[in-house]
Design a protein around this nucleic acid. Structure first.
Lengths: 340, 340
DNA sequence: TTGAAAGCGATACCAC
DNA sequence: GTGGTATCGCTTTCAA
């Protein structure tokens, strides 16, 4: 890697002091137009780019934002990549770059180090098992951060998420409108708040329709393959089996769907099913899957924008956003139609 | 963000010079064990983490690796995220972090700046429209990099990719073994070398089976939705329509599959179809999709490992790896079976 | 084995 | 409007 040009050399080249050159390049107010253009020309000519480390050290600012996520537990699946896509788009426009922080091992220690090394100016935090402790830590360190896809109670914590409660209620109501009376909810307790939000939405819709909640129909699957299929078999073996299933995310929904079909039942005629997240697979399954679509890229964009706002003026109130999620109705509830 | 502890303060605290403290923390040879442990204890006690910018400046090394990708053209879909997952896993173990570089606008200028700002020690380059120019530029700058998922001719350029030629030949042979004689190839010319590699594999398999290549069956779709369906209709309207399709990637294959079904034909009975990349959707389609599985996470791991090797000793020969891709046979060629 | 001092490359304060 | 100089926090000779 060939030695790069420094600001000093530009200064010598144009016969000006380094400080003036710096000012010219950084568009300071009191530099003559002529000087400015001469310096800029020289910089371009010599192929000058300021060395990041030196600049960061002096400015105490890196123009980098961290994106943290559980790993390999959470890993960079389609879900995270949709978030990142939005994050990157907004960051890019503002001249920021994204540094990936997989949180393995001692997550809290990792976070501490992120705060103290000053490698990034702020952090986007994806829900992990230690979200509560992580939030507490970052708050204590007064490190700028925004939580992705989780709602946080503490009023000074910034977050951007989808409205899981309302979306789930809407999904349940959709099923109720179709005549379903025994609707099961299959969640994953490991998903924490999202899990509870969905249950809340589920209850809300049933109550609004004057339907009693059968607690035996509200279940949690462990996050291992096959757990959903197992639960489906148990649910459908009940004396009064459900006629519809709400699953906490699409892969689980598709696993359920296939388990239902394996039992010789038809979807949606015998059992209807709704997933969540609108992952690619939900369009490709047969029947295609009705699912909740959370605007993940938009969550990423808004979270990034909120973080940038906070960095530019930390007296601004924290960004606390619950974006609407919409229900995408497909064949798994509505009945088959001709392929789209 | 609360002011962090510096090495100076540790030094004062343990009544040693900053240089000694630095050496103790960085595990230098000639520091007494007692001093070392005292310093380490103090650092832990005071919650010291070295400031990244200062360290990077002095060391001329950041322990960061860039991951560049076309954006939004390429964007961070499932494909890129599988690569990144491997990259991150390997980087993490070696104490490196990944910085995302979406290449928008003037890609070559972006690359130049990546080289010269010294923000990262090396670069993983995902194929983009300007891959050839990008490679030339990085070579000229003598910046350490490895190309992902593309084979590069210049012998000193490092890359890690899957064997598209052999994999495509294997897929074609699979179809031939099933009795197919008129096999179409639907690619996307924008994918450059991969596109040509697949065609080469396709020809190779046909020739090996003494089948003539009907050039009318080798087509390229533009990368817009619906382009594949359009081509399918044209191909199937020919006097001698193909009985099997090789598509360059799964989304295109699924689009074709659905277009075939929309014409009232059955897959695989009337037309068989093979995709590539083994994306999630390929398991969920009906029928499920036979597809080529490139070991993307492994490509990411190997590329990262190769880059690290090069950074530790740049006299080592460049990592040039073509990893085997395997054919995953599912219902779209084999015929339906009971759901897995 | 420890310490003093130089310096990495930029920015920012304060004179002029 | 321009320049001198200190400084950001750390590593790294070199001398003791």
């Amino acid at each position: 890697m060939v030695m790069a040009i420094t600001l000093q050399e530009i200064a010598r080249y144009v016969k000006l002091s380094p400080s003036t050159v710096s000012k010219a390049l950084n568009d300071y107010p009191r530099v003559s137009d002529e000087t400015k253009s001469r310096v800029i020309a020289a910089a371009r000519e010599l192929g000058y780019y300021p060395m990041a480390a030196a600049r960061d050290l002096r400015r105490r600012k890196t123009n980098r934002i961290g994106f943290s996520f559980g790993f390999p537990n959470v890993d960079i699946g389609e879900f995270a990549s949709r978030l990142i896509t939005g994050v990157v788009a907004t960051a890019e426009k503002a001249g920021y770059n994204i540094l990936l922080y997989p949180l393995t091992g001692d997550q809290l220690q990792k976070l501490t180090s992120i705060c103290k090394t000053g490698e990034v100016d702020g952090l986007l935090l994806m829900g992990s098992e230690y979200l509560v402790e992580s939030v507490a830590l970052l708050r204590r360190e007064q490190f700028p951060f925004v939580v992705l896809n989780r709602q946080i109670d503490e009023p000074d914590v910034a977050f951007v998420t989808a409205d899981h409660v309302t979306a789930t209620a809407e999904a349940a109501r959709h099923l109720i409108d179709l005549g379903h009376r025994r609707i099961a909810y299959i969640g994953q307790a490991v998903l924490g708040k999202v899990h509870h939000d969905r249950i809340a939405g589920y209850r809300q819709a049933l109550q609004a329709a004057d339907l009693a909640v059968d607690e035996g129909l509200v279940v949690s699957a462990s996050p291992v393959p096959g757990a959903g299929a197992q639960l489906i078999r148990q649910l459908l073996a009940r004396p009064e089996p459900p006629t519809a299933i709400l699953a906490i995310h699409d892969p689980l929904a598709i696993e359920c769907l296939q388990a239902i079909q394996a039992l010789g039942l038809r979807v949606p005629e015998d059992v209807a099913i709704v997933g969540s997240d609108n992952l690619r697979g939900s369009q490709d399954s047969r029947p295609t899957l009705t699912t909740i679509h959370p605007p993940l890229a938009e969550i990423g964009r808004q979270a990034m924008a909120g973080l940038l706002r906070r960095l530019s003026d930390n007296s601004l109130p924290p960004t606390r956003l619950v974006l609407p999620a919409r229900l995408v109705i497909r064949e798994s509830t509505r009945g088959r139609s001709s392929p789209a």
